[in-house]
């Protein structure tokens, strides 16, 4: 049956969104028309669009996890990341373009969380495309007002003596949270440590995996 996958989850565990084998929508029609006009007018090429999508697909939270794990293991890098996050991550091959990247290290008494109240700004070079919930009214509205309650909806319960600091992204400035290094990981290599770093731990709505 060609259509039966809609009842299933994709390999990543998320549901498929309707795409090319259900009825064409108005907005899909517009996308096709806009893309073809841009190509015909000589503004873009089909190859550019394909390679941009390939580059987008290549960016995932694995990039951010490498940054965090290196921060934990390489003091010189940690210093460079805090001084100029854009340059330090560019040097690792994760170019953020003209935007400013700010790294936010958690401490035993401080927990950082990132939101974009106005839109959907997100460190795409380190985490890929933002998840739907990050762009939702609920997350955008409430995270700056009642962050502990929002965090508890993600299963993160913080003791009252831990300060929670919320950072509101802008079109020009992106944040990444550096979670606390899990206990029991002394002597681990960067790649091993990166396995513990979840996407949500770099947004602040989660914690790293245990060792």
């Amino acid at each position: 049956m060609p259509h039966d996958h809609h009842d299933h989850l994709s390999p990543s565990g998320h549901p498929y969104r309707k795409d090319d084998d259900v009825e064409l929508t108005y907005w899909q029609t517009m996308e096709i028309a806009v893309r073809e006009l841009l190509i015909e007018k000589g503004e873009l090429t089909a190859a550019q669009i394909t390679s941009q999508i390939d580059a987008m697909d290549a960016r995932s939270p694995a990039n951010g996890a490498q940054v965090v794990a290196r921060y934990w293991t390489d003091p010189d890098f940690a210093e460079a990341l805090l001084a100029d996050g854009s340059q330090a991550t560019r040097d690792m091959g994760y170019d953020i373009g003209p935007m400013k990247l700010i790294a936010l290290p958690n401490t035993p008494t401080l927990h950082n969380v990132v939101v974009c109240t106005l839109c959907s700004c997100y460190p795409r070079n380190l985490l890929g495309l933002p998840p739907d919930w990050y762009k939702s009214r609920a997350y955008r509205s409430r995270t700056v007002r009642e962050p502990r309650r929002v965090l508890s909806e993600f299963g993160v319960e913080l003791s009252p003596d831990i300060e929670v600091r919320v950072h509101d992204s802008t079109a020009d400035m992106r944040y990444i949270v550096i979670p606390n290094r899990p206990d029991g990981t002394e002597g681990w290599m960067q790649d091993q440590l990166a396995e513990l770093v979840t996407r949500d731990s770099m947004i602040g709505t989660g914690l790293p995996k245990h060792s």
């Binding site: 998320h14 998840p131 739907d132 919930w133 997350y139 409430r142 929002v150 909806e153 993600f154």
Partner: peptide, 8 residues
């Protein structure tokens, strides 16, 4: 409440 929605 925030619903943990995401999709490919």
């Amino acid at each position: 409440p925030v619903l943990p929605d995401e999709h490919d």
